[in-house]
Design a protein around this nucleic acid. Structure first.
Lengths: 344, 344
DNA sequence: TTGAAAGCGCTAACAC
DNA sequence: GTGTTAGCGCTTTCAA
């Protein structure tokens, strides 16, 4: 492979000059620059990143810490969508994306080790299981962080308006006449799950509706199996007095719930209305199609990339509040007006 | 950050010895090894990959060239699935995954340039639009390649048994009494599309059925819009004599076709049976659920990783034939016995 | 505007 | 078994 020395020799200038050309320094004669560039192209010179990194300490690499219960990884409909736009935006500025994992060694702090091993300039935290301690260690190592999942002190977070979204969903159900609204929620260990559940409780208070544990089920993990178990649990607990509507913490679980209810002879939405959260592709294809809160994944990814770039340019970022991306209520077939009988 | 010199100084040995310890050389005293390791852990030493790469020319990085019409990127249900397992398997052996893109400069051979810039040891070719010329340039640069999309000379390819799968699908339809079977195919520029279409034609010949261009539509791209256009075209061309069954080149387009047919009052499967290819998640959720050929994406990813690792270990790989992963016919609701009336 | 040279952190002869 | 040392390909003072 051609090195900077080859370009220097061939063009008749020194390596210092060639380096300056490639790093867009000002103090280079235009003719010199042109000659160097032509020579470089002719002999197929490409600067080697590892050599650059060694001296500049800048790798142009962004680590992605991306791991959840499901091990769905890249195909995860929500995070995969966020990541796609984040990646595109970072690539525009010359950064490449690399996945950080825990295979690196057998100690703790493995994510941090992996980050240092690869010298990443920044890290996108998109793991529902990354402990605060590890996140902060990465931050303190001088690696610029942005989170799109949990909220860590001093690290900017980009996430949907879970509270408002959930409120809107519940108000919509209320407007349809529903007064007995259950919840099948995502794990409250995740920020999204926590905020949605808090919104649920606040809604009940605000509208003077009783909190009935018999129509509340909360998952501990995001697996399909657990989703089904909790869906059944919810039905069993309330079988003498089923809710007329159920808010499901995310679309996947809404679909699981819907299928289960249909399988035991409950009609959706006539007997029970269902509302999800995410608006993943399946939501518009399932039967009935799912009323849900759309998350703007591309917007989240774009905002995260923006915050990342600004930090990489050493701008100060306000980390005192979470950056929110609005959600939108998408009304489809899984919700309808509560039957009058319910209100007697 | 602690360097190898710090470890050397602190432990009382030389950098050469420390290096040997970290590279698992044999000629190191056990006690020495232990002391070095303890010191390294104590001061938080992590070897810097860019320094290692500079001297060893090995980056432990695998580039993924992953791009298709749809720009779905990571969320692409087929390639995303393949990539996920590939990534996991490569990570087990110490390799990290990096995405190679064309933003690198403004010339041709941009993928190759990006590969060299990052010094990748191998490249997974998963792009439906990567020209042979560029693929071979990467191969000739000494970068180990595996393809999971197109077939390039001298580069091992892992792909599903498209021919047998399509044959099985069509035979199944035949066994249900269908004699007028249409096809709404993926672009034949892709290997998958080509092989499936060839299998279709061979099936007709084998079963002595006429080839009728009125029930054949082939997409030029993988976009949803094009899918719908070609679906309509197929129906329009054959509206006086509709097929009783249609083989769709991939699940997404099968769903689009199905929705369209239902929207114009055609009943699935009673009027027309539909069969897809992929078995993506939606296939089991759509209404009716989709009969389809399951592709074992994890198997493809695993086999690709295996071939990659073997090349990285300088094993010779037989590239004379394509490595095939079997498909499986998954029978669901979108297919049924042809009505007798059709056979009169 | 250009060039000489030191050094980034590591590996791998080679010498001891 | 262990240590010395010359690079790997690049950037960046500093001097010319």
């Amino acid at each position: 492979m051609a090195t900077i020395y080859d370009v220097a020799k061939e063009s008749g200038f020194s390596v210092a000059t060639v380096s300056k050309v490639f790093n867009r320094y000002s103090g280079v004669n235009d003719k010199t620059r042109e000659k160097v560039l032509i020579t470089a192209r002719r002999i197929g010179y490409v600067p080697i990143q590892s050599a650059q990194t060694l001296v500049t300490k800048k790798s142009w690499l962004i680590g992605v810490i991306f791991k959840e219960d499901l091990n769905q990884g890249l195909i995860h409909p929500h995070f995969g969508g966020v990541l796609e736009t984040f990646k595109l935006e970072m690539e525009k500025s010359g950064y490449d994306i690399i996945f950080i994992n825990r295979n690196f060694s057998n100690q703790n702090m493995r994510y941090l080790e992996h980050c240092r091993y690869r010298n990443v300039d920044g890290a996108l935290l998109a793991s529902s299981t990354l402990p605060q301690e590890e996140a902060l260690a990465i931050h303190h190592a001088g690696i610029k962080c942005v989170s799109v999942e949990k909220n860590y002190p001093k690290i900017p977070t980009v996430i949907s308006t879970n509270h408002e979204g959930t409120m809107n969903a519940l108000k919509y159900l209320y407007s349809l006449g529903h007064r007995r609204i259950g919840i099948l929620n995502s794990p409250i260990g995740s920020l999204a799950g926590y905020e949605r559940f808090e919104a649920y409780k606040m809604f009940l208070k605000k509208y003077n509706l009783p909190y009935d544990p018999n129509i509340v089920s909360i998952c501990d993990t995001y697996t399909d199996e657990e989703g089904l178990i909790k869906a059944k649990e919810l039905v069993n607990k309330s079988k003498n007095n089923l809710p007329t509507a159920i808010f499901a913490g995310y679309d996947k679980i809404a679909i699981i719930l819907q299928s289960y209810l249909i399988s035991i002879g409950i009609s959706i939405p006539n007997d029970i209305s269902i509302i999800g959260f995410d608006d993943i592709e399946i939501a518009s294809i399932s039967t009935p199609t799912l009323t849900t809160l759309r998350q703007y994944r591309a917007e989240i990814g774009r905002k995260a990339a923006d915050l990342m770039k600004r930090q990489l340019n050493n701008e100060k970022i306000d980390t005192s509040e979470i950056f929110r991306i609005p959600t939108e209520l998408i009304i489809r077939e899984s919700t309808c007006r509560a039957r009058i009988i319910e209100r007697i």
